[in-house]
């Protein structure tokens, strides 16, 4: 068995080995680094805008400058968010979806694990990093400035840009896994769902936060109990870890099937029984 390659490809007649084994270059992590760099460049531009106009034009909501430089931006960003959400999620759910998941070959599945699951969630993580960066900018802003409205310059890039963007990639990762990978074809992995769902709570909690600030806490005390409601949702990182550890055995199984000729559960079987498809024993050679 060790020298033989067994691939379960459903009803499709596969004759060429080349189609079953993805090219090594496909797993070039440079693609991921490139995405991260592109995202960083666009956020870097936002940062420069903030450095240029936050203090000079953004400390008084009632001023004309604020309306020109910041509220225009806020509305632009908000409309952009809705469009991005609609396009990304709509495209994944209705267009990009694989309607014949049960016919997936291990080689193709491995590629999808890499692109649709790992790298999409990687980009999600990178957007989280940037979101937290802007949270920190908000911290320095409020430590130094008099609390204006909830549309203060640091909030515009924090609450209304970086958070919706990471939510976009999180939901995209969840949808891609659901529509493109057999294990999630019929059931949902709880840690993956939670890892995406929990941080979404940051957005509704803006309401709680700003309400509290409008009522009493005007000065900045970063560790104020008012901010603690965000904390449990930061623990979503543990769900992320769970998702990684839980899915990894299936990746190992399709990798072994693709390169080592080992047997693995077919896509159709994995759809029916994801618990068994992600059993950690699959990470061991020959199992």
């Amino acid at each position: 068995m060790a020298n033989e390659r067994v691939a379960t490809v459903g009803a499709v007649d596969v004759s060429a080995v080349a189609e079953l084994v993805p090219k090594k270059e496909y797993f070039n992590n440079w693609r991921f680094y490139l995405y991260c760099i592109l995202i960083s460049l666009s956020y870097g531009a936002c940062m420069l805008y903030q450095r240029a106009f936050a203090i000079s034009k953004g400390i008084d909501y009632t001023s004309q400058d604020f309306q020109t430089y910041w509220m225009t931006l806020f509305w632009g960003i908000t409309i952009m968010n809705v469009i991005i959400w609609g396009l990304t999620w709509g495209w994944i759910w209705f267009v990009y979806r694989d309607r014949h998941l049960e016919q997936l070959s291990p080689g193709e599945e491995l590629k999808r694990w890499y692109s649709n699951w790992l790298l999409t969630l990687g980009v999600y993580a990178w957007c989280l990093v940037w979101a937290v960066f802007f949270v920190e900018q908000d911290g320095v802003w409020h430590s130094s400035m008099i609390r204006d409205t909830e549309f203060t310059p640091s909030h515009i890039f924090n609450f209304y840009l970086s958070w919706p963007i990471f939510i976009n990639f999180g939901v995209a990762g969840l949808m891609l896994t659901r529509t493109r990978l057999p294990v999630m074809g019929k059931k949902w992995l709880l840690p993956l769902v939670m890892e995406v769902a929990w941080p979404i709570m940051f957005i509704p909690l803006i309401g709680e936060n700003e309400w509290g600030h409008s009522a009493w806490i005007l000065e900045e005390w970063f560790a104020a109990p008012l901010h603690w409601t965000f904390v449990p949702f930061a623990w979503a990182a543990v769900w992320f870890l769970g998702n990684g550890f839980d899915m990894f055995p299936r990746i190992a199984a399709v990798l072994k099937a693709t390169y080592f000729g080992e047997k693995c559960m077919s896509a159709a079987e994995a759809m029916e029984n994801p618990e068994e498809a992600t059993n950690p024993v699959h990470t061991l050679p020959g199992m």
């Binding site: 797993f27 990687g122 989280l128 990093v129 104020a224 965000f230 930061a234 990684g244």
Partner: peptide
């Protein structure tokens, strides 16, 4: 391929737990 996937997976996990820890820590210790 397995090594590459493992490496980038740990990078991503490292990033996530870092920012998770940071968000939790800075909002509590600040």
């Amino acid at each position: 391929v397995g090594k590459r996937i493992q490496f980038v997976a740990w990078v991503i996990i490292g990033m996530t737990v870092t920012v998770g820890t940071f968000a939790s820590q800075s909002l509590l210790e600040g």
